[in-house]
Structures are given as structure tokens and as C-alpha cells.
């Protein structure tokens, strides 16, 4: 299976074929490119950072590295935000920058072919559709494929000083 790096930059028009890690936010199921994932761990106590948006939970110590943690549930207003032993943090490695994302749970790693991926219709959502690579159908469920790198480096996430173009 070829998961070339082009996928990371792929917008709707481009091929989004590849392996995806699927995760749950509220009642919706999302997918992100597996190669961006460094590890998956439980939710630990974070150190809050002053004067940052509420979806930035703070920073944690990941084996000596200071890593910011973002709660996508807060960002996208999805589901009940609670932190328990089932809360999962996906640690992403985006071009060397390490970021943690809080989700309700991770479910699977699936391989998707081009023909399984549909374009996203124009919608009004809290996530800009330009960060959505496409929609995939999986056993009657809809999977929202996000371009996590573009999303995380976007201005609205306020995670990085310089926005990667």
C-alpha cells in the first residue's frame, strides 16, 4: 500500500488513499493518516498555560519533551467533555513537532482505496471543509477523513507561531 507523503498535502482533489487511524469524537467517527501518529496514550494531568484558548489543555511531559495537548472535542463542540481512564490522547508527529490530541476513543486502523473516498459537499461546520480530505463509508458508518497536519498548523488552532503554508 502506498502512502506517499503527497497524501499529507492532499486536498479533496488529490488521492487520499492510505491507512487511517479512526477515532471517535462524540457521535462522529473521524480518520487521520496513520503515518502522522507517533503513539497513543492515556490522559495525564496537564499543566495549564495562561491566556490560551480553552481547547488547548496545556502541556505534558512526554519523556522529557514538553508537548501541548489539544482537546478536539472542545474545539469542535462535540460530545461531553470528560476525562477518565478511557480518555485517549493521540500523540501526533507533524514534521518534527509533537502535539497531543484528546479524543473520546480510537477504534481501528483501516486501509482506504480512492474509490471508497467521497468528496465533501459544501457545508457549514465548525471545522473548515478545507481540512477534510474526504468522506468514506465503512459498514454503513461515515468516516470523516481530516488532514490533521493542515488542521493543527492552522491559525485557528493557535498551536504554532508561524503557520505552515
Amino acid at each position: 500500500m502506498s502512502t506517499d507523503t503527497a497524501t499529507s498535502n492532499a486536498l479533496k482533489a488529490k488521492s487520499a488513499e492510505g491507512e487511517y487511524l479512526t477515532f471517535v469524537l462524540g457521535a462522529e467517527e473521524y480518520g487521520l493518516e496513520i503515518l502522522k501518529v507517533q503513539e497513543i496514550r492515556g490522559y495525564d494531568a496537564v499543566t495549564q498555560i495562561a491566556n490560551t484558548p480553552d481547547f488547548i489543555k496545556g502541556v505534558v511531559n512526554l519523556r522529557g519533551k514538553i508537548v501541548p495537548i489539544v482537546d478536539l472535542r472542545i474545539k469542535f463542540n462535540l460530545g461531553k467533555v470528560e476525562y477518565n481512564e478511557l480518555t485517549v490522547v493521540i500523540i501526533l508527529n507533524l514534521r518534527g513537532r509533537v502535539v497531543g490530541v484528546v479524543v473520546d476513543g480510537v477504534s481501528d486502523v483501516i486501509a482506504l482505496k480512492d474509490e471508497q473516498i467521497r468528496d465533501v459537499p459544501s457545508l457549514v461546520t465548525s471545522i473548515d471543509t478545507k481540512y477534510i480530505v474526504g468522506l468514506a463509508t465503512l459498514d454503513e458508518r461515515m468516516l470523516i477523513l481530516v488532514d490533521i497536519e493542515q488542521l493543527m498548523s492552522s491559525q485557528e488552532m493557535a498551536l504554532m507561531d508561524a503557520v505552515a503554508a
Binding site: 502541556v59 513537532r97 502535539v99 493557535a158 504554532m160
Partner: peptide
Amino acid sequence: KSLETNFKKV
């Protein structure tokens, strides 16, 4: 430790 490695200047 630098905050800016993975985050930004606060």
C-alpha cells in the same frame, strides 16, 4: 526546556 519546540511562545 523550550516551549517553542512543539508549541509556541506564550
